[in-house]
């Protein structure tokens, strides 16, 4: 016979539950009552986790606005060749530093007479790339290092994490600058530098999350089924640490953008004349007394994108923060 939980049995004895039985004509059996009760209890299919996260995210107004803003920035940057009114690289020497709303230059021109709106649209491509790609690279590598060290705890893990500690001993921007300075300028080198800078913090988050997972009893249960290390990592550890890592990494995209912009501000990022927000900010630095608004525009773009990333990441963290156990 089947053993039913007490909660399912108890209502069967009450008149209210008896009245709700499907067939009032025939006297309800205990079994039919249990079935009816069960059906009522589970009429609503449990919402899958990610659908619930999405629902919660979209109830967060700040998060939705930030996400929409990000979407706008990404789309306009990608579509820059279609949207931009001018050539991003060619300027008119006589039209230098025109203020915004002068003639057909909606946002004015830069120090070489190039249309600022055009340059900002194109510049978004590299700036977003320089923030996004290193975060993805660092997340993949950092997760691998962190979960392995947290799971293995042996010599290999210790060596890896002590190495991470040493990289962590450098202030982030400084390490990026030092790597960038040794590699030389260029977008690829900047991506590489920022990736290296972000591997240690992600590895740390991954490691501590993994350590919390490996002491759980479900890890022991899985080991008891004879599963090997890689299978355990893939099926038990990764699904349980990925959330934490992704939330953390999403918060890093904004920081990565800032550091990448800082690098190109120092001349270590994308090389002129290709537009990129950090480099544009630096190249117009000398004109801040004569054309303050124009100078501020690239910085404003970096700021807005970064705010959008951080707000969206905060909203994501809040909507993923559900009691799961």
């Amino acid at each position: 016979m089947t053993v039913w939980p007490l909660t399912k049995l108890a209502p069967a004895a009450t008149p209210a539950a008896a009245g709700a039985a499907p067939a009032p004509a025939a006297p309800p059996t205990a079994e039919s009552l249990r079935e009816a009760w069960w059906a009522a209890d589970h009429a609503i299919e449990p919402r899958p986790y990610w659908r619930e996260v999405r629902r919660r995210f979209f109830t967060n107004r700040a998060g939705v606005v930030a996400l929409a803003g990000l979407g706008l920035i990404v789309v306009t940057s990608v579509l820059a060749p279609l949207l931009a009114p001018y050539d991003p690289l060619v300027g008119v020497a006589t039209d230098r530093l025109m203020p915004p709303f002068s003639g057909s230059h909606v946002l004015g021109t830069d120090e070489q007479g190039r249309d600022l709106l055009t340059r900002l649209l194109y510049g978004g491509q590299l700036s977003l790339l320089a923030g996004f790609v290193p975060t993805v690279i660092a997340t993949v590598i950092g997760t691998a290092i962190g979960t392995w060290s947290g799971y293995k705890r042996g010599a290999s893990g210790t060596v890896l994490m002590r190495g991470m500690d040493m990289l962590y001993a450098f202030p982030a921007i400084l390490l990026a600058i030092a790597i960038g300075a040794s590699l030389g300028g260029g977008l690829l080198n900047s991506i590489l530098a920022v990736s290296v800078v972000f591997i240690p913090p992600i590895a740390r988050v991954a490691e501590s999350a993994t350590r919390q997972v490996v002491v759980q009893e479900y890890m022991e249960a899985a080991r008891l089924s004879g599963a090997g290390s890689l299978r355990l990592l893939r099926t038990q550890v990764l699904p349980n640490v990925l959330n934490q890592i992704l939330v953390y990494a999403s918060g890093l995209v904004g920081v990565a953008m800032l550091i990448a912009a800082g690098l190109s501000f120092l001349g270590l990022g994308s090389q002129p004349p290709t537009p990129e927000w950090g480099y544009m900010l630096n190249s117009m630095r000398d004109t801040l007394y004569s054309a303050p608004v124009n100078t501020m525009l690239p910085g404003l773009m970096i700021f807005l994108t970064s705010v959008a990333f951080n707000t969206a990441s905060d909203a994501l963290r809040e909507s993923m923060d559900m009691r799961l156990t």
Binding site: L258, A261, P292, F303, V307
Partner: peptide, 23 residues
């Protein structure tokens, strides 16, 4: 504090120059 985290320090420095020095 949310916006403060998102401001590049070099951008803020430029804004401060514009406000306190130029203006």
């Amino acid at each position: 504090s949310l916006t403060g985290l998102s401001v590049p320090s070099f951008f803020l420095a430029i804004v401060m120059l514009i406000v306190f020095s130029a203006t």
